[in-house]
Design a protein around this nucleic acid. Structure first.
Length: 581
RNA sequence: GCGCCCGUAGCUCAGGGGAUAGAGCGACGGUUUCCUAAACCGUAGGUCGAUGGUUCGAAUCCAUCCGGGCGCACCA
């Protein structure tokens, strides 16, 4: 494991045990990266917290720890004590160089495979059939996919679940409207989902006869009427094609095989309710079957019900979610289930989780709702088009590529058209996804084309550009017949090389942290800092024109390793890289 | 009314109880016979919403309050 922090921890634990006895063996040495270079590379903050427990002054505790510490071959010099009792650590250059070589020689860049691989269900995206995807679906798709990629890379068995909204009363209306269009010999408009839905809705609201037919159609559909089921299937298939036309350019790894839609659970709803009834968890209230999980209150202060069957016998999304949860535990054998939805559903999932727990379905299973905030316009209000409509996802992606193409054409007019389009795709889509991932997901974020497509700051283009710069060096090296040995020894003579190397070694720790916190923005921050350090290195340390052959091959190897980390990191975020831009 | 989330530089945002709170944009000033100046370096800019508390130490944990957002019975 190359992350120096994980090498330091056992050293300090051993020292603490040796100095103060085994009863302190479990004490966290509180190793942290130094906040300022002048303090060294890392610091251990354990002396202050341990002082009281061992009844000594923090600085004396620090002294004793250092005396017991077996630091040679790891530190460059004896650790020093500063301030109230900080232990400052400067790593040995040879140690860094060796660790770096180990990372370079590992195809996983030092990221260990999970010691106890789990089956993790990740539920994300979940758009509604017969409705066009809009900007609101972006976050769940992008964040969920990044989380799935990270867990997958860690070696877990990731089961993606796209919980499509393909069932419900609105389908009566849609099928009835489709039938009327087929009868009228006009099927062209069926392919435009938005228009189709809106027209059906308008007719439903305006025409009582149609509305009545639509209601009957729901019953027909649910009873398995062949014509109705056929029409429903056609709508669902059209929608799937539409969803895939968004996932494909977005690089979201969802396929038809990941679809487990609401209708799938339809035959399991009655049994889900029955099981909860048998467990004695339900109460009938105003004719509806409810679970009252403790800890939730309605507006009037009364216990808040989770309604699992309506008074008219119909089921709700709580029922479907419970059926899905049970299925994921019992049939998919999930150890961990992750729901990526907007934060407004927080209470809903808290109630569903509590109910599942009461039912005994969740023993040994970790349930996590991963909430995220909304996309806002630059005016701070929900992101809309100028005319006040929701922004279609397809339009958004097209605009991203158009704007990126303009930027690329502006900066690199010499590239052939085809290549500029390729670059525009990677940059435009990358910019949108990165902007969505780079902020702490729980907060709302402000959508700004200008900011996300900028080459400065914490953006996809900045990171992609770092990769391009590195690749550019290697292209030039090839034309000069300079051979590159990826296993060449890396020497960290310049401070810029050292800082870059240290950051490279922190990659495994960051990936691990994201796998636990499910906060992709931590990976973004890391990659941005890495790219920034590379640019600093690039300015200070000429690679191809290095003073001697050994330095040149060292810098080439360091550049190649940086490129691999950037590429791998961006891939975990679902963002592609290019050769030129 | 109850509950949840957010409040950090003019703007957009980082900040796993630790030292002098950091980036980017914007402002100002520099750097190019040299691998992409699409970059880099520097300067200015902060009562971390407020007040208490816990702690050797609080932007970070707790409480109360203020501001903004969201949710709370048969939609999803």
């Amino acid at each position: 494991m190359p992350d120096p922090q994980s090498a330091l921890e056992p050293l300090f634990r051993a020292a603490i045990s040796k100095a103060f006895g085994d009863q302190h063996a479990a004490t966290d040495p509180l190793i942290r990266p130094a906040q300022n270079d002048k303090f060294g590379d890392y610091q251990a903050n354990v002396a202050m917290s341990l002082a009281k427990a061992v009844g000594a002054k923090p600085r004396d505790v620090a002294t004793k720890i250092i005396e017991a510490l077996d630091w040679k071959n790891v530190f460059a010099e004896p650790p020093t004590i500063a301030g109230p009792g900080f232990i400052n650590i400067k790593l040995d250059r040879a140690f860094l160089e060796q660790t770096l070589a180990a990372a370079a020689g590992d195809e996983r860049l030092g990221v260990p495979r999970a010691a106890d691989p789990q089956t993790v269900v990740v539920d994300y995206s979940g758009p509604n059939v017969a409705k066009e995807m809009h900007v609101g679906h972006l976050r769940s798709s992008v964040i969920g996919d990044a989380i799935a990629r990270v867990l997958d890379f860690e070696g877990h068995t990731v089961v993606r679940q796209n919980h499509l909204g393909d069932w419900g009363t609105q389908f009566g209306m849609l099928i009835e409207y489709m039938a009327s269009m087929v009868n009228a010999g006009d099927e062209t408009k069926i392919n435009d989902l938005n228009a189709f839905y809106q027209q059906a809705k308008a007719r439903f609201d305006a025409d009582p006869t149609f509305a009545e037919a639509a209601r009957k159609r729901v019953v027909l559909l649910q009873s398995g009427d062949a014509y109705s089921v056929g029409a429903w299937t056609r709508i669902v298939e059209l929608s799937k094609r539409h969803f895939n036309s968004a996932y494909q350019p977005l690089g979201v790894k969802l396929s038809d095989a990941d679809i487990r839609a609401e209708s799938f659970y339809n035959p399991r709803l009655a049994d889900t309710v029955a099981e909860l009834e048998e467990l004695g968890l339900t109460k009938v209230s105003d004719g509806a079957i409810c679970v009252f999980p403790p800890g939730f209150a309605a507006e009037n202060g009364e216990p808040l019900p989770l309604i699992i069957r309506k008074s008219d016998g119909g089921y709700l999304y709580a029922t479907t979610d419970l059926a899905a949860l049970r299925f994921r535990v019992r049939d998919l054998h999930a150890d961990r289930i992750i729901y990526v939805t907007d934060s407004r559903q927080k209470q809903h999932f808290a109630m569903v989780f509590k109910t599942a727990e009461l039912a005994g379905w969740t023993a040994g299973v970790k349930l996590e709702h991963v909430p995220f905030g909304s996309v806002l316009g630059e005016d701070g209000k929900p992101f809309k088009t100028r005319s006040g409509e929701t922004v279609k996802l397809a339009d958004l992606l097209n605009e991203a590529e158009e704007r990126a193409l303009k930027v690329v054409t502006d900066k690199s007019p010499e590239l052939p058209t085809e290549q500029r389009q390729e670059v525009a795709h990677a940059v435009g889509i990358g910019a949108i996804k990165y902007a969505d991932l780079a902020n702490d997901r729980i907060k709302d974020y402000v959508f700004s084309w200008e900011r996300m497509l900028s080459f400065d700051g914490n953006t996809a283009p900045y990171l992609q550009n770092a990769v391009v710069r590195i690749r550019s060096i290697f292209r030039k090296a090839a034309t000069q017949n300079i051979k590159f040995d990826p296993a060449a020894p890396i020497t960290l003579a310049d401070p810029a090389e050292r800082s870059l190397a240290l950051r490279i070694l922190q990659f495994p720790g960051v990936v691990n942290q994201v796998a636990q916190s499910l906060e992709p923005h931590r990976l973004c921050t890391y990659l941005y800092e890495l790219a920034s350090l590379y640019h600093g290195f690039y300015e200070r340390c000429p690679v191809l024109t290095a003073p001697d052959g050994a330095t040149r091959s060292s810098r080439l190897a360091l550049s190649a390793l940086t490129e691999r980390v950037l590429k791998q990191g961006l891939d975990l975020l679902g963002i592609g890289v290019v050769d030129r831009m």
